[in-house]
Design a protein around this nucleic acid. Structure first.
Lengths: 345, 345
DNA sequence: ACACATGATGTTATCGATGCCAATACTCGG
DNA sequence: CCGAGTATTGGCATCGATAACATCATGTGT
């Protein structure tokens, strides 16, 4: 009973079914659907009608097996609640979808090379055409080198692989904007609560902060370190608030900044009257917690879209020269910063 | 030159290459790798050795074409920054990965049925074995019914399809916990800022709030409405803060709650001394903004894991009876709520 | 020692789309 | 009206893994 229709078998319609209904060969259907030039307009119409009638949809597995193209890209991220890591995925999915690509996510719980290797391998298994590494990867293993060499890869915000193209927000610039803003307000110096040193964006912010101070001839005070969480901002605040003469702090994330502010309040310091605070990210609450937070906004959506664009270019043309791209952050002044009080000097 | 090795052709090794190296047939390799019982231990070892030597990895496209199993599930979410919508995806990816499944995300920018149809269709095209709808879908179209009938589907937090199994946090309970907490503190009544009415969790919270008040013999005051954003909480706060006798507010999300609190401050009302506020979600900042927020924590990770578990069960056994599951939220009392001041009555 | 049950392995066909090449249908110039 | 030349179209093999069936080897009971 080979001639039984697909409906009878319960299987979804295949190209052969479309061909039968349209009265053409399978090949012609394939060409009609993928926009091949040499298909007569009339034939294409017949095919499209048949497709419509049967509710036919291309089988991606078959196409992928034969042509190697899956129209899917992979996204490696760290599994976390931190705002910045989340915000960027939204931009990526959006841009990918607009280009007709699906996004398969592989989250990793840690920054172990082996965990990242695993994530990359899983994506490779699923036949992704390219990968976006949105992970602040520091230690690059042999295996990662291999995997990223065999698949087009874009790294967001750093990584030390030579093989991969990088799209990044200019975090050094972010730190400069924040630090200079505080100096411009007349503060003697600026303290810094950094993110974990394994994170490239954290270390770039730290560098930007240090360089800006040095350019102005100030000696950078010792750097404090957090883990991005509000709790770590709070813990550092309990220390910082006890040090006399601290009047300005640049914090590497908004969430830590609010933790800091809370600790300062508990120690009886007012923000911004006694101490000015600047964060990074511009989370939704930055404007609505008290005091509203002066911060450096990160163009997450733009970064994601740019990463996808570069990746697709690399997929289309494997030999395209890597073109590092960077996106500019933007200072948003709100109520957590104020001019330094005239010092007794 | 059929015998040329794969390395020479540049193609990644296929099962046939493994078979050649191991000195067995392709079928045996397949069996060895998928844990089929009737393969001698010695043979399996030879196969594994060959796999290791060649760095062989299964081609998912081929497996999927032949067996229909893609080991991928789809996730439909609304593209948004709201914390709650994001937090759940993390739990899902984690659970799916542990079960050996990959997650393909399809975000939608709106709750239009057509947008959701599109997302489902894209996922279906990519051959997902099942779908998690993490979208508070209200209007269910014909096409959505069809799609969800042909693919195992789990809905998180609602939807009106009969065909799909639902995993949900008990939002009515969340509202009851919050409302009762405020009543227990002696407040005469509790006001409510709800989320958008198209969201099932928003309307469940509203219902829970209303019922609890009625059970206690109070007449629910008029309900205010926000859009989940801090800004909408702020806007509602500017109204609410001008109404005399408001002493307790239950807000449908933490982010709106902080917006509300800010507006109240600007109007000269103190939280919790003048007005008590309870939110929902327990975002990371809930504890660290001022005042720290009393809120109802949502077990996001647990919900995600449960959804995946149910989905995989449904995939494994299509006839399994739908078993609605619900997860209990938990009240966390912090500093934004206080006993009602003895009223002049 | 023989027949049969069971276990282990091999062979062949198949999933659905597409690349390559051959075949047919059409165009136009002379 | 014919043949060269191009526009369309069809046939076949193929991608890699697996289901179904066939075959061979091993062990067991009587």
């Amino acid at each position: 009973m080979k001639e039984r229709t697909r409906e009878a078998t319960g299987r979804p319609p295949a190209m052969a079914d479309v061909a039968r209904v349209a009265g053409t060969s399978v090949q012609t259907v394939s060409r009609a659907l993928s926009g091949h030039p040499s298909v007569r307009e009339k034939t294409r119409a017949k095919v499209l009608a048949a497709v419509d009638q049967l509710g036919y949809r291309k089988n991606n597995a078959a196409r992928m097996l034969r042509s190697g193209r899956s129209r899917t890209i992979g996204l490696v991220t760290l599994q976390t609640d931190f705002y910045s890591r989340i915000a960027v995925t939204s931009g990526i999915e959006n841009a990918a979808h607009e280009a007709g690509y699906a996004v398969t996510a592989a989250t990793t719980k840690s920054l172990d090379t082996s965990a990242i290797e695993g994530a990359l391998a899983r994506l490779a298994d699923h036949g992704v055409e390219g990968v976006i590494l949105a992970v602040p990867l520091i230690h690059v293993s042999q295996r990662i080198e291999e995997l990223t060499r065999s698949i087009p890869t874009i790294t967001i915000d750093g990584s030390r692989t030579d093989a991969t193209e990088v799209v990044a927000v200019d975090q050094t610039m972010a730190a400069r904007l924040a630090t200079r803003h505080l100096l411009d307000l007349g503060h003697e110096t600026v303290w810094h609560i950094a993110g974990p040193s394994e994170w490239l964006d954290a270390s770039s912010r730290s560098t930007g902060w240090r360089l800006t101070l040095e350019e102005e001839g100030r000696t950078p005070p010792p750097e404090l370190k957090g883990d991005w969480s509000p709790a770590s901002g709070y813990a550092n605040g309990l220390v910082l608030g006890r040090i006399p003469d601290v009047t300005a702090v640049f914090v590497a994330s908004d969430e830590m900044a609010f933790g800091l502010i809370r600790a300062l309040h508990e120690l009886g310091k007012r923000v911004p009257e006694d101490i000015s605070v600047v964060g990074v990210d511009d989370i939704a609450l930055a404007e609505y917690c008290s005091p509203s937070l002066t911060t450096v906004a990160q163009p997450f959506a733009e970064t994601g879209a740019l990463a996808v664009a570069h990746l697709l270019r690399q997929i289309a043309d494997a030999d395209a020269a890597p073109a590092p791209a960077s996106v500019e952050p933007r200072l948003i002044v709100r109520a957590s910063t104020a001019p330094a009080k005239a010092s007794g000097g």
